[in-house]
Design a protein around this nucleic acid. Structure first.
Lengths: 197, 197, 197, 197
DNA sequence: TATGAATGAGGCTTCATTCAT
DNA sequence: AATGAATGAAGCCTCATTCAT
């Protein structure tokens, strides 16, 4: 019954991934059944298993996309030609904007990491660590050059900021009083204020 | 068949709650089966359902305990007789210590809230909001009296700090380089630094 | 909490039986749990099992009461000193009135008979048969003496009439357009009309 | 493991429905477990839930079949070209024959209606009422034209007759002294006799 | 490239009954 | 005469995955 001209001609694999992302974010990974995904995407189970090896695979694909995106953006801001305060402020604000713009992915990211298979979990954690270290390096650079306080360990500062990013999925709502950019500027401001010597 | 000296003489209901808390924190709510809980607690399913109406109920009990504990402690610190900076610092540090000391509960809290039944979820969110507002009132007090910056909305500051608390479950490990108290002091320090006018 | 002066001082066993009767009629035997019964009766499970050997026992008691009542009334009407037409009409009408007045029991009777244990089922069927035969004897008497048609076997006539009695539980509602007595008179009239030679 | 020559090549859904019908009639709906049904039909639970949404659904399917069948037959007889006495007699006898020929369905019908979900129960009652009203119209027609007595309300007469139909499941046994046709003729005769003015 | 029927394991929950007190 | 905690079996249903087509 479900023809091939079902209103969407987007490649099946992409449609499945997008649908799965939305449903995982809305209901959680475990609460979303493969049946629901294929129904919402307008395909059948056979099609899903043709493109993805397992439900777990689908989740892993979501992670891959988010990780690549954020790492790439951090690299760009951190490597810019500007004073370290500026580079940190820009990177800190950018991750907030990017997160809000991809809030579904982020909700999944933080809520469902422990639902990956051990092997894939390990891989994701490793990439995650690289990201953390790149950010920390920025802070340590500022501490060495005296523009940031050394009272607080750099690691803790990274976690402090990413805590707030992580938390966005809990409270941020589209159409609220602040635009993504305003939220980003405020949160980056708080970070930089805290780092004043 | 099951003897009375089965390793624990703690009341059954308490043993079930403690076991469930541990397993939910380790594996997530959806990944933990009722079967696992009763086996680990050394009782039968019937016993569990004698004390708790459902698996969801068990989760709700965990929430209730955490919420009551944290609200009570916040009330104590916020209502103390001291300058507002001191009261905020103490409250901010205390929630960190309490969270680390009950890290299992907290992991469950932030990861599984959306797995409560709609009705119970509503109730939990309402109590959570009260907590948030009490904390915000402290910040607004400092803003009115000029000891905290007014550059950043108080609401956002609350979320900033609680983001880092929420995040603790992701990175804090017992036996790490910092004691709970040290982590707490650092995080409270970061908050107060950010609030300097 | 549930004291002994709970509003009802009726003997516990009677209260249990009355409550069970109501619930069985409303929801069916299998759909009514022992827990529901004891809660509605304001006692505990232990009390129920003190008075009744099993849930099945409770059902059997209900049957006993109905059977005794109806047999006794039939005997009275059938043995009266009156022409057979009158005796049959009175008996046929009386069973309708009695049934309506004890509609709960009757609903249970016809719906749940096959849920008795085989042994008790056998016993109930035996008493039921006695009742059927007493009624049939009345019809055969009229057939022998020429006041009732012999076109239709007496057995079938008994089932014809009791079918309508059985059916009352399906459609009769208190407060409907006809009183129990009117319904009874009409149904007895239909029976007698059908028996005219 | 389960071969394809398992004794039956009838489509799985049909086999399940037939098996369920038999078991529901024999043991009652509540007493029949899904496990029993699938074992008797030689399939797995998954297969059952592939075709039917729930156990309740299965029951509802049985109802649908019976209702459609009986309504269709009544329409045919009631709409025939014959005197009203003849049409009523034919319809009344036919429902008896049809009921005996599908005694399993009928047993289920009258015993388990109250075990349907509220929504489905409502639907079944509505179709049932249509049937009742069609039958009543036939009687009212005869009353208006003077061939049937007006002493008894038409509604009550319908219930009188259907009571006896309903009751068939309780006493009719294959191989008894009367054929289905003979039973039907006797019962229709009783009805018409009762209606003589 | 895709279907969808079928599997089999496991999930949560209910329940009549027993028993130490 | 009565409690209520605890049992153990069974009940209905869901699900990720496979496979013949």
């Amino acid at each position: 019954m479900a023809g091939t001209t079902d209103g969407s001609t987007k490649p099946v694999a992409q449609r499945l991934l997008a649908t799965a992302t939305r449903l995982f974010a809305e209901q959680g990974y475990d609460r979303t059944s493969v049946q629901e995904i294929v129904e919402a995407a307008g395909v059948t189970k056979g099609a899903l298993y043709h493109y993805f090896g397992s439900k777990d695979d689908l989740l892993h694909e979501v992670y891959g996309r988010v990780l690549r995106l954020q790492q790439e953006r951090l690299d760009r801001f951190a490597g810019a030609d500007a004073p370290v305060e500026q580079r940190l402020r820009d990177a800190a604000a950018d991750v907030v904007v990017t997160t809000i713009e991809n809030l579904d992915d982020t909700k999944i990211f933080f809520r469902s990491m422990h639902q990956l298979s051990p092997e894939k979990d390990k891989q994701v954690r490793a990439e995650r660590r690289r990201y953390h270290e790149r950010f920390r390096a920025l802070i340590e650079e500022g501490q060495r050059t005296g523009v940031f306080t050394t009272e607080v360990p750099a690691d803790l500062i990274v976690d402090y900021h990413f805590g707030s990013v992580h938390h966005l999925g809990t409270w941020y709502r589209e159409g609220g009083p602040l635009t993504p950019r305003e939220v980003a500027d405020h949160l980056a401001d708080l970070l930089l204020r805290a780092l004043r010597p």
